[in-house]
Amino acid sequence: MKRNPLVPYFLIFAMGFVIIFFLGIKGIGDAKEIANEGEEGGEEEVAFEPEEFANKTCISCHGENLEGASGPSLHGTGLSKEEVADILQNGKGSAMPAGLVPPDNIDAMAEYVSNLK
């Protein structure tokens, strides 16, 4: 007796269709639970770390230890916190662009830079 060579393919197709059908039903049932997870937990706000920000953003111009490279050294600048905040917000000439530090974090970054020795 000869067997039809297409039977295994039809069985695999049928099993795949059944699995997709039941997983779809399971997903519909879990949709409300998944939606509620996003509302309850939310995204935790990460605290701004000036040193971490400087290591990601400022080292390209001010050098690895912020001791100067194409930009001046940030150690011992003699600038007050307010002066540093003004430079961070408005920039300085064509070398220091404005807006590198998010406005909410300018005070923290200005304090960090003004305290570098």
Rank of each mutant, 00 (worst) to 15 (best):
N115D: 10
F21Q: 07
G24W: 11
L79T: 10
K117I: 03
P102I: 13
P5N: 10
N115E: 15
K56W: 01
G99I: 00
H75P: 00
Y112P: 11
E67Q: 15
E33F: 10
E45D: 06
G63I: 04
A47D: 04
P103D: 15
C58N: 05
V7R: 07
N4C: 08
P102C: 10
N115Y: 06
P8C: 03
I25F: 04
E51W: 01
P50Y: 02
S80P: 09
G29K: 09
H62R: 11
F53P: 11
D30M: 13
E111I: 03
E82T: 01
K92H: 12
T77G: 09
L74N: 06
V84S: 07
P103Q: 13
E43W: 07
T57M: 13
N90Q: 06
G38S: 06
G68V: 13
E82G: 04
G41W: 09
C61S: 06
K81M: 04
S60V: 06
A110I: 00
C58R: 10
T57W: 01
P102D: 07
K81Q: 14
Y9T: 07
L74T: 03
P103R: 08
R3F: 12
K32D: 15
S73R: 12
N36P: 00
I34E: 11
N90Y: 10
P72L: 12
H62K: 12
V18P: 00
P50W: 08
Y112R: 07
E83R: 00
T57N: 13
E49H: 12
F21I: 07
G27K: 03
D86E: 11
V113G: 13
E45V: 12
G41A: 04
H62C: 03
K2E: 11
L66N: 10
I28S: 13
K92M: 09
N115M: 11
E82Q: 03
M1N: 06
D86Q: 08
A54W: 11
E64P: 00
N36Y: 09
Q89S: 13
K2A: 14
S60C: 00
